[in-house]
Amino acid sequence: MHVPDGYLDAATTAGTAAVAAAGVALALRGARRELDERTAPMAGLTAAFVFAVQMMNFPVAYGTSGHLIGGALTAVLVGPWTAVLCMTVVLLVQALVFADGGLTAVGTNVTLMGLVAVGVGYGAFRLLRAVLPAGRTGLLAAAGVGAFLSVPVAALVFVGLFGLGGVADVSLGSVAVAMGGVHLLIGLGEAAITVAVLGAVLAVRPDLVRGARHLQRATALAPRSETAGRPAAPAAPAPVEAR
């Protein structure tokens, strides 16, 4: 979904750049609360991983491909503010070094794939996490739905921007149908990859998943972790059990 230069007019491009800058500024403050000695190295890894997986375009219908955005995955792994920073680094490197996504459009891309994808993905994840049964399955379902939703919503926000400042004179309705339709399919891939990666991390190091910390505290994951032989982690849950 990397928007190239030229699709949107200068005013809309400048507007999204301002939104992106404000979002990143907020994230720089918010991420300080999220980043500790565990999440900081995880954040670097997650950003690098998202960059790599974004190269893996998978085929969807109509001779079209899509790739992971990674906003929801990153937010669940390292926290939403840190995720905005991770996505911004990925998008900046892609625009500046790999000519993927326009240079003037980098604010648009940070808005769509940083702010919107992370916001929608993590927002839906938190809502669902609150209502679904606690435990691995509920957590993965919440993350999967968040990941799925993040893609078509980001696509429709692009359509909205295109309506505000699209350079070409084409029917907005049919752009919306086409963008929304294909990104529903890509969203399924986003959900599958997000659930697979989160499931793998939860299986070996659930303590490194920031969005699963409440489970750690409630020891819902403890039985499995203990059988997996995890010497480092039990220090944290112990006080809760003592209570």
């Binding site: 979904m1 990397h2 928007v3 190239p4 230069d5 030229g6 699709y7 190269m55 893996m56 375009n57 998978f58 085929p59 969807v60 109509y62 001779g63 079209t64 491909s65 899509g66 790739h67 625009a95 500046l96 070094v97 790999f98 000519a99 996504g101 326009g102 240079l103 696509a155 692009f158 699209g166 350079v167 070409a168 084409v170 029917s171 049919s174 752009v175 086409a178 963008m179 294909v182 990104h183 890509i186």
Partner: peptide, 28 residues
């Protein structure tokens, strides 16, 4: 091994006829 088909946005732009408004990035 990644698919080299156009992505969702590129395909939509081609289908809806606004792909010609794309400009080469300054970092091309």
């Amino acid at each position: 091994y990644a698919s080299s088909s156009p992505d969702g946005l590129e395909a939509t732009a081609a289908e809806q006829g606004f792909d010609h408004t794309a400009e080469d990035s300054a970092t091309a």
